[in-house]
Structure formats: structure tokens, C-alpha cells
Amino acid sequence: MNTLQNAILQAYGWNTYWDTALSHQNENIQRLSPARVVAQFSHSYNIMTESGEHSAIVTGKFEFLAAKRGDYPSVGDWVMVERLPNENRSVIHAVLPRRTAMVRKAAGNVIEDQIIGANLDYLFIVNALNQDFNVRKIERFLVAAWDSGAQPVVLLTKADLCDEPENFARQVENVAPGVPVHFISALLGQGKEALGDYLRAGITIGVTGSSGVGKSTLLNWLAGKPLQEVQGIREADARGRHTTTHRELFLLENGALVMDTPGMRELQLWEAQDGWEHAFADIEELAAQCRYRDCKHDTDQGCAVIEAVNSGALDAKRFSNYKKTARELAHLARKENASSLKTSQKTQRSKPNKSKLRPNKKAYLQED
């Protein structure tokens, strides 16, 4: 099948890039049909195929071979599937290599990654202009966004609640050089025209942020119709309630694809060293001017970073967040290395000891 001839797949973002990616897979995979994951639940998926939307699960072999949580399909992934005979269901055999992916550490003590969204072109980082506005939180999302490979865009929602939204926009611009910042109000219909450059046919946009910042309202506003249920926020602290319970990809009438995600109280970073360096590029440039190469940016003589903080050229709170996220990533790396070593040692112990095998042909054949 020439996938580019299928209007449904094209509408959901299939293009020559994915034709090429598929051509690099083995023949067994190429014989399957491509589909895009449009919704993700605990043990199943909704996928968009050449014949429409199906429910799907992964095969037993896929589940057996998956080494970690991030190996499983996520919303936005292109997967290779087989439709079950006489059913509106499919099984997923493989995930095509992701072009981009926003990843966070899974909740809890487990050291695992969780894919928030795959194959995103843009990532809308949404923050409300009310009591919940937090530039430090935006910095954390920028770290994950830059590491994902998608282009971050900051949207400051509920501009109708703020007398001078430009002041907040400047705060964000100071910590996100080069990142577009827009303030919008769905209530007043303000700011939609500024998003037109992103909302193009075949472009996939992820929407992320805390609960109550207006992600679902934003989606409904951009779509021009109610796609997601919305709720009000708590008046006491402007915190939101979890309305969106799963990640889902929506095709808008203008051809853009927008992914809504559940709100996150706190984004736990995952292996985001590159994104961290990009998000704090201004501090990294200052660090390169320090007298000592291994400067800890604490009390070292000739520290250009501390000098910038003392002079007011660098915001002390931004510098604090820089150090905090650096410690967090280093701690995660140590825990991940320890977990990998423990798993490796456990695997080694579970292997049979060749020296204790009987020296007969049958035993050696079994071991081979």
C-alpha cells in the first residue's frame, strides 16, 4: 500500500518522512499497516488506521520484549498493526522510531520513563495568569520541551484576569530567550490569530501544564466546539481539578493535530541533560567564563555566575532553580545507574553456571 495515497493517514500526519522510516524496517513489519495512536488508556489504545478508528492492544511478543515503560506505544506514536478478522480491533506489533518525544520520570519511586507525547512538532507550555502563575515551573517544562526535540511555545492563558499581561510575558521571555510567548483569553477571544502559524495541516501540537491552567478550554476554543469537558478552579488557591484523565490527540477542522494531556502538579525530569543546558543556556555561557573549569558556582573565587547574581545581572531565583534541577538530574542518573547494575547482577545470577553443566553434547546444545 502506498500510505501517502490514504487520506486518513495523511490527515493524521503521515508524510514522506514516515514512508522513509517504514522502508528501513524489516519485511515482516513492512507487511503490516501503519496507524497513529490517538488515545491511551491503562491497557489499551485507540488508533487511527487507513479504515478509521480502532481499539488496539500490543501483542504478547511485544509485551515480552518491552524492556521498559517507554518502549510501549504512546499518544502520537506511529505503530504497525494487524487488524483482527471481522472485528473493529487491531493488535500492535511495533512502534516506528520516534522523531520527537516529551518524557518525564514516572510517578512514584520506580525509576522509569513515561512518554507524555510522541512525534510532536510544537509543545504548548500553558500557564495561567492568576495566583498559579509560576515562572520556575515554566523553566522546568522548558527543560523537558527542549530535550524532547519539539519547539516550545509558552501560552499565558486567562489574560482577562490580569490587568497587565505584558509584564508576565516579559518575565517568561527573560528565562526563555528565543521561545515565543503569547497571552490569550478564550473568554474574550483574544490571541487566537497569533497561534495561526502553528495550527497548520499535518502539524502535531502537544499541550501541557498544571491542572486548571485552561488546557482543555484552549483545545475547545481552538476547535470551535466542545471536544473536552472543562471544570472551574478552586477559588481559594486558583488550583485546578483533574478534568482530562488520559492523553488524546484531536484533529481540528483546519488540519492541525492537538494533543490534550492531564494536568501535572509537578514535572519530574528524566534524562534531560541536553534540555537542561538549552533551557539554562545563559547561565551555561556565564559558567564558561569562570576562572576554574570545575567551578561549583558556590564560593569559588573568580566565579562569573556568582558575580552575575551579586550584580543583579542574573536572577537569584533562576540560578537557584538551575542548581536544583542539576542536582535532581544527577540524583536520577545515580539511581538509574544503581538500578541498571542491580538488574544486570540479578540477570547474571539467574544464568546457569556452565562449569556445573554435565559435559555431554545435549547439555552444551541447550546452553548454546
Results as ranks from 00 to 15, higher is better:
residue 224 G to L: 06
residue 220 N to E: 04
residue 310 N to T: 04
residue 272 A to N: 11
residue 315 D to R: 02
residue 335 K to M: 12
residue 312 G to R: 03
residue 287 A to N: 05
residue 255 G to P: 00
residue 263 G to T: 07
residue 277 E to K: 08
residue 298 D to Q: 10
residue 319 F to L: 12
residue 222 L to I: 01
residue 261 T to P: 05
residue 251 L to W: 06
residue 221 W to D: 07
residue 334 R to D: 15
residue 333 A to R: 15
residue 289 Q to T: 02
residue 262 P to T: 04
residue 217 T to Y: 07
residue 238 A to Y: 09
residue 317 K to R: 14
residue 349 R to S: 08
residue 306 I to Q: 14
residue 266 E to K: 05
residue 319 F to Y: 13
residue 257 L to Q: 12
residue 266 E to N: 10
residue 309 V to P: 00
residue 225 K to H: 10
residue 291 R to I: 04
residue 269 L to C: 07
residue 315 D to I: 03
residue 316 A to W: 06
residue 331 H to G: 12
residue 283 I to K: 01
residue 329 L to Q: 08
residue 293 R to M: 08
residue 275 G to N: 06
residue 307 E to Y: 00
residue 274 D to C: 00
residue 224 G to C: 02
residue 316 A to F: 04
residue 290 C to M: 12
residue 243 T to Q: 03
residue 276 W to I: 07
residue 249 L to V: 07
residue 221 W to C: 04
residue 290 C to I: 12
residue 275 G to C: 07
residue 326 A to F: 11
residue 225 K to C: 05
residue 224 G to H: 04
residue 292 Y to D: 13
residue 341 L to W: 11
residue 248 E to K: 06
residue 252 L to M: 01
residue 354 K to W: 04
residue 285 E to A: 12
residue 269 L to V: 12
residue 219 L to W: 00
residue 319 F to V: 05
residue 324 K to S: 11
residue 222 L to V: 01
residue 254 N to S: 06
residue 320 S to W: 08
residue 328 E to R: 00
residue 344 S to M: 14
residue 226 P to F: 10
residue 231 Q to S: 15
residue 297 H to Y: 05
residue 265 R to E: 13
residue 302 G to W: 09
residue 353 N to I: 06
residue 239 R to A: 13
residue 248 E to Q: 15
residue 257 L to E: 09
residue 300 D to K: 03
residue 240 G to F: 09
residue 308 A to G: 06
residue 327 R to T: 09
residue 228 Q to G: 00
residue 342 K to L: 08
residue 320 S to N: 10
residue 300 D to Q: 15
residue 280 F to I: 10
residue 277 E to A: 09
residue 294 D to F: 13
residue 247 R to D: 08
residue 270 W to M: 02
residue 226 P to H: 08
residue 245 T to Y: 03
residue 265 R to Q: 13
residue 257 L to M: 13
residue 235 E to F: 06
residue 278 H to I: 00
residue 245 T to G: 06
residue 236 A to L: 14
residue 341 L to R: 08
residue 344 S to R: 15
residue 325 T to K: 00
residue 349 R to K: 13
residue 232 G to P: 11
residue 279 A to W: 10
residue 305 V to P: 03
residue 281 A to Y: 01
residue 325 T to G: 01
residue 305 V to C: 05
residue 240 G to S: 04
residue 258 V to I: 10
residue 347 T to C: 01
residue 229 E to Q: 14
residue 353 N to M: 01
residue 307 E to A: 15
residue 235 E to R: 14
residue 268 Q to C: 07
residue 313 A to S: 09
residue 283 I to L: 12
residue 258 V to D: 03
residue 259 M to D: 07
residue 229 E to S: 13
residue 282 D to V: 03
residue 254 N to Q: 08
residue 294 D to A: 14
residue 230 V to A: 11
residue 253 E to Y: 00
residue 237 D to Q: 14
residue 337 N to M: 11
residue 353 N to A: 04
residue 294 D to G: 09
residue 240 G to P: 05
residue 242 H to E: 13
residue 236 A to M: 13
residue 246 H to Y: 11
residue 309 V to H: 00
residue 321 N to V: 12
residue 324 K to W: 07
residue 328 E to F: 01
residue 241 R to L: 14
residue 234 R to Q: 15
residue 329 L to M: 08
residue 225 K to S: 05
residue 322 Y to E: 02
residue 348 Q to Y: 11
residue 329 L to P: 03
residue 227 L to G: 13
residue 340 S to C: 01
residue 314 L to K: 01
residue 218 L to Q: 09
residue 298 D to E: 15
residue 333 A to I: 11
residue 325 T to N: 14
residue 301 Q to S: 12
residue 342 K to A: 14
residue 278 H to L: 11
residue 230 V to C: 12
residue 241 R to F: 10
